[in-house]
């Protein structure tokens, strides 16, 4: 069964169409990055998925069901939303104890979850004194309480220091690849998720711009090929319809032909190539390119 399924989801707030006909799925054992600039509709999508917001049309399902119809939601889905949602006068452990009680989970879970996110030492401290990073860890501990197989995280890296982000990456990969969980993680900063995600869904202005595997997306970034040769190859490439830029002597940047076409041309021209590489524009530029596309549309 598909762990997370969003089907033709739309939601408006007043005149603002926050989410417009968005569809995608997340399978077990994978991490999907849900990317887009601030205000793109990521949070609204995730909140619809979690039954906090009622969509105008379309469906958002977890394990094939609406979240609001789940009898034991914490056992199926762990969610991390904004980091401010704690009572400042309550201790970290009490916060988790309340969730544990309401969900009917074993009383040992709060301490285990705090241990798992590295907050055991702060268990009996009031949340009011926590840093943003500690709050994010506490929110994650809350998501782990019911040992679910689906995780939905909204900007979980916000406020984490570099070490914290590093830790989070490893943790999310562990959840998906070692425990087989489906992980959906939103972010507006690509660098945070680039090394974590298997799949990417990009949204801008409420509309889905692109989705695919990380490799598919990065492989699609402009199509330039870098060619190293000591021979004078540029005229032949231009004659074949390519756009050629001489980056430095012996290094050409070719657009309009792929590596195979260039190789074949070199063979015909008896030119020796020492290197042919597809230029992998990194995800960041793909992201910027795609989201800009979405904004123009």
């Amino acid at each position: 069964m598909t762990a997370i399924e969003i089907r033709n989801l739309s939601k408006s707030f007043g005149a603002v169409r926050a989410v417009d006909d968005v569809s995608f799925t997340v399978e077990a054992g994978t991490v999907t990055g849900y990317l887009g600039p601030n205000g793109a509709g990521k949070t609204t999508t995730l909140r619809s998925l979690l039954g906090l917001v009622t969509p105008d049309s379309g469906e958002a399902l977890v394990n094939g069901r609406r979240y609001a119809s789940l009898d034991h939601p914490l056992n199926e889905v762990g969610a991390v939303l904004e980091a401010t949602s704690f009572h400042p006068g309550r201790t970290a452990r009490d916060h988790l104890r309340i969730m544990t009680t309401a969900a009917g989970l074993p009383a040992s879970r709060p301490d285990e979850a705090l241990d798992q996110v590295g907050l055991a030492d702060a268990a009996r401290k009031r949340v009011g004194g926590f840093s943003l990073g500690m709050r994010q860890r506490l929110a994650l501990a809350g998501a782990l309480l019911g040992q679910p197989k689906i995780f939905i995280l909204d900007e979980p890296a916000n406020g984490l220091d570099p070490a914290g982000i590093q830790w989070l990456r490893g943790f999310l990969r562990h959840l998906a690849h070692d425990t087989g969980a489906a992980v959906l993680v939103s972010s507006h900063v690509l660098a945070e998720v680039e090394q974590t995600v298997d799949n990417v869904v990009i949204i801008a202005k409420g509309r889905l711009v692109r989705q695919g595997t990380l490799a598919e997306l990065t492989g699609n970034g402009g199509g330039a090929v870098r060619v190293k040769t000591k021979d004078d190859f540029a005229p032949a490439l231009r004659a074949a319809g390519a756009e050629v830029e001489e980056v430095e002597p012996g290094l050409l940047r070719v657009k309009g032909l792929d590596a195979e076409e260039i190789g074949r041309l070199a063979l015909d021209q008896r030119v020796l190539l020492t290197e042919v590489t597809h230029e992998r524009s990194d995800l960041q530029s793909v992201f910027l390119e795609l989201t800009a596309e979405g904004e123009r549309a």
Binding site: P73, A79, T84, S85, H87
Partner: peptide, 18 residues
């Protein structure tokens, strides 16, 4: 009201969506 003031209502409804 403290659920709304501190937005703990989000967590409350995530734990008990009904």
């Amino acid at each position: 009201t403290s659920e709304y003031r501190y937005q703990t209502i989000t967590g409350t409804f995530l734990t008990t969506p009904k």
